[in-house]
Amino acid sequence: MTGTTLSEPKRLLLIDDDPNLILLVKDYLEFRGYEVITADNGRSAMEILNKEIPDMIICDVMMPEMDGYSFVKQIRDDARTNWIPVLFLSAKGQSQDRVKGLSTGADVYMVKPFEPEELVAQVESSLKQASRLMQQQTRRSDSTPKIKVPFDVELTPTEMKVVQLVARGMSNREIAEMMNVSQRTIESHVSSMLAKTSLHNRTELARWAIESNKA
């Protein structure tokens, strides 16, 4: 078995409403050793994500049913999927289009048409970066004592969303703007969670959320 690898192939979710592009990109990525799942819009992709989690997502921006922006916002708000690297494909190549795509939550923004080799290079780079981050988090968790909280802590759905955003490094003001509520309301939710968990500050709350897989 010399020269073969025993590791599982990386699984990619490819989302685009152009069947020809889907076919070409899927064939090219599979030829390079990746396993590729496909969907023709964001809504179909969400159904796939309810059943399985890919290692990376390649997503068109302009699609029917649910476009790329709405799709990425949803996966970034979900603790199960917010860590997945996302590469946007778009026919729009203006600076403001790139800024909007990246600020929405994409990690990479590529303009159509693109060279297949460049796509593969971006995929490999994103997967390596995600692997390094996961290794770094593992080393930190191994060397740093875990946050201890009462075992029976239960958060409300709103508190869950707030703590996920806290763990992403967002301020109370930024969270309030995203959730369309007052900053005082967010401060109240944070105070409630600190009381429930017996933690002392937002930093500890963020660490606990990450260590307990809530974010």
Rank of each mutant, 00 (worst) to 15 (best):
N213R: 15
C59E: 11
M178F: 02
E118T: 11
H200N: 12
T4L: 04
M63P: 00
T185P: 07
D107N: 15
N50W: 06
N41D: 13
E8H: 04
L205V: 06
P64L: 01
G105P: 07
H200W: 08
A121C: 09
R207F: 01
E35S: 03
T4E: 08
M1S: 13
K112W: 00
A176P: 04
V72A: 00
M179N: 07
Q96V: 11
P113A: 05
M178A: 12
R202K: 11
L199H: 08
R207T: 13
G33D: 08
T5F: 01
L102N: 09
V181A: 05
S182C: 10
F88C: 07
D16R: 00
A167C: 04
R11Y: 07
D77R: 06
R202D: 14
E124Y: 01
A130G: 10
L155Q: 05
R98D: 08
K10V: 06
Q74W: 01
R76N: 03
A206F: 00
F88V: 10
P157Y: 07
S7N: 12
P64H: 07
Q94N: 15
E47I: 01
V99Y: 12
I75Q: 10
A39H: 09
R80Q: 12
Q94P: 04
G105L: 05
Y28W: 07
G93N: 14
P19L: 12
T2H: 15
S44R: 11
R168P: 01
M66A: 00
R184F: 12
G101H: 10
V153N: 08
I53Y: 10
R140T: 15
D77V: 02
E174H: 00
K112T: 06
Q135R: 14
D97V: 05
V99F: 11
L12G: 06
F31W: 03
V163N: 05
V25W: 04
G68E: 03
T144E: 15
L6K: 11
A209G: 02
Q183A: 12
T203E: 13
R207E: 15
L12S: 09
M1F: 03
E159G: 06
N180K: 09
K51Q: 10
G169D: 11
N50P: 04
S188V: 13
I175M: 02
N180L: 12
K92W: 06
N180V: 09
M1V: 03
